[in-house]
Design a protein around this nucleic acid. Structure first.
Length: 471
DNA sequence: TGCTCGTTCGA
DNA sequence: CGAACGAGC
């Protein structure tokens, strides 16, 4: 009887799970393991919202395994030490896992792989979460891509719809001394997470459900609906993707199958959505090739940029959604309440922090890291560097979002604003978009006056960028 | 995946 | 006088 260990990390699914499939194909018995080791993730251990999600996702994985007659062995500690101990306890001859792409994870996994091989254990890693490995794609100059469009053109032409594998049948084995998931203490001591629980269903089954909901929406009008924050017009698959509860290949396959059944003249275009998955690939490509970018400006000219001094009071108003700018505050409160924010609104609140308040993008990246259920180092880094203008293929520095016109354009009726700003619930456009224009409204609602003048702060940002460029 | 301002054009 | 458009930020 040969035994393999499958080391689960952020691939919390049973279907289309290459490490698990390979283990089940080549070995009679399989031990699924999760090792909680946040100390191995450096400065980017999961934040509070992420830990919540992880808890529920592990619970879902455990219950699915139990239905299969198997069981997830849960531990905490040093990954290598625990794996060695389990190899010893089970007589396993192989350890399989799916790759991660954060610099600290790569370093850890290389060490683990080398150490296991040295003791004669077969150690193999697989690709479970990307269409294409970051090292498998380069420009004609044999350099990593730095611009999205050529990256996407190259990836898109090679993309074919392939059927994902289904879940294997698992002959699991039980090992003593596993922990209950509760023992990992991933849930908050103070239960602030009720909003998260109402908004989401973590786990592979929740991911499948979200995909089905999205298939129906995508089939109608993703291209326009995705820009309206009041609607659930986006896929809302990001946290599921982050934890590997579903793969891009599964999504692509499902969407392609769904639209191919529709009459060609009315067939919706899934390219805009595939392109968003392309941005995710690009983010991973960049993080792999430029591992310093979670903290260092991609464009080093920005090292000289005149940020405002760190200002905790301003930062706190932004975090708590009390800036006095309705769309910014609505977004920040949506984030706090649900662990997620609509993508268009993310761009607006980020632009406001980096340009109107001129606070360093690090502060925004860190807050998102702690509060987003889809916090992902590659995506978060790309997003913040893109907005601040310091990134690869970033928004030009002079592109400053005006949160009022964005709200007028994408939340014309103010439905999203009223949902998240209860004190303005009886206001309506046009004053809802600019409540400071009605002193009586501010007074009776208690909604704050804007912390900065949008026009003045925009001009100040442009001149700061200008002088950086001149320097 | 922008904004603002100035200009022009048509009601 | 406002919509539409292009240039420059």
């Amino acid at each position: 009887m040969s035994t393999a260990i499958v080391w689960f990390r952020r691939d919390l699914r049973l279907a289309d799970q290459p490490a698990l499939s390979a283990a089940c194909a080549a070995h009679e018995r399989v031990l699924p393991v999760y090792i909680h080791a946040p100390h191995e993730e450096g400065a980017w251990a999961p934040g509070a919202a992420s830990r919540c999600w992880l808890h529920h996702s592990l619970v879902d994985l455990q219950s699915q395994l139990r239905e299969q007659g198997a069981s997830l062995h849960v531990r905490r500690g040093d990954s290598l030490a625990v794996l060695r101990e389990l190899v010893h306890a089970t007589g396993a001859t192989a350890v399989y896992w799916n790759r991660l792409y954060e610099p600290t994870a790569i370093a850890r996994d290389s060490t683990v792989k080398a150490a296991l091989r040295e003791q004669g254990v077969e150690a193999r890693s697989f690709n479970a979460s990307l269409w294409c490995e970051p090292w498998q794609r380069e420009t004609r100059q044999q350099a990593p891509y730095r611009v999205f469009t050529p990256f996407w053109r190259s990836l898109r032409t090679q993309l074919s719809v392939t059927a994902p594998s289904t879940r294997p049948s698992i002959h699991g084995l039980e090992v003593a001394d596993g922990l209950p998931i509760d023992a990992l203490e991933l849930l908050p001591a103070i239960p602030w997470d009720s909003g998260l629980r109402e908004a989401w269903r973590p786990g592979e089954r929740g991911a499948r459900e979200a995909l089905e909901v999205f298939e129906d929406d995508a089939v109608t009008d993703y291209a326009t609906a995705r820009d309206l924050p009041a609607r659930h017009g986006t896929s809302r698959l990001s946290p599921h993707l982050h934890f590997g509860e579903i793969s891009p290949r599964q999504i692509h396959h499902a969407l392609a199958a769904r639209v191919s059944a529709i009459d060609a003249r009315r067939r919706p275009d899934i390219e805009p959505f595939l392109r968003e998955l392309g941005w995710r690939e690009f983010a991973h490509h960049l993080l792999y090739h430029f591992p310093a970018t979670p903290t260092a400006n991609f464009d080093r000219r920005f090292d000289r940029f005149a940020w405002e001094a760190d200002d905790n009071a301003s930062l706190e108003r932004w975090q708590q959604g009390r800036t006095g700018i309705p769309l910014v505050d609505a977004g920040m409160r949506e984030l706090w309440h649900t662990g997620w924010m609509h993508n268009r609104v993310r761009m607006v609140v980020a632009s406001f922090l980096c340009k109107n308040l001129r606070q360093h993008w690090h502060h925004g990246a860190r807050w998102f890291w702690d509060t987003l259920v889809d916090a992902d180092l590659a995506n978060n880094t790309l997003g913040w560097q893109w907005v601040s203008g310091s990134g690869a293929d970033a928004a030009p520095y002079f592109r400053v979002f005006n949160p009022v016109s964005q709200a007028q354009k994408f939340d014309a009726q103010g439905e999203y604003l009223r949902r998240w700003l209860p004190e303005l619930r009886d206001a309506s456009p046009p004053l809802l978009h600019e409540p400071w224009k009605d002193a009586a409204l501010l007074k009776r609602s208690g909604y704050p006056a804007p912390m900065v003048d949008l026009g003045d702060s925009r001009a100040a940002a442009l001149s700061a960028y200008q002088s950086m460029r001149g320097a």
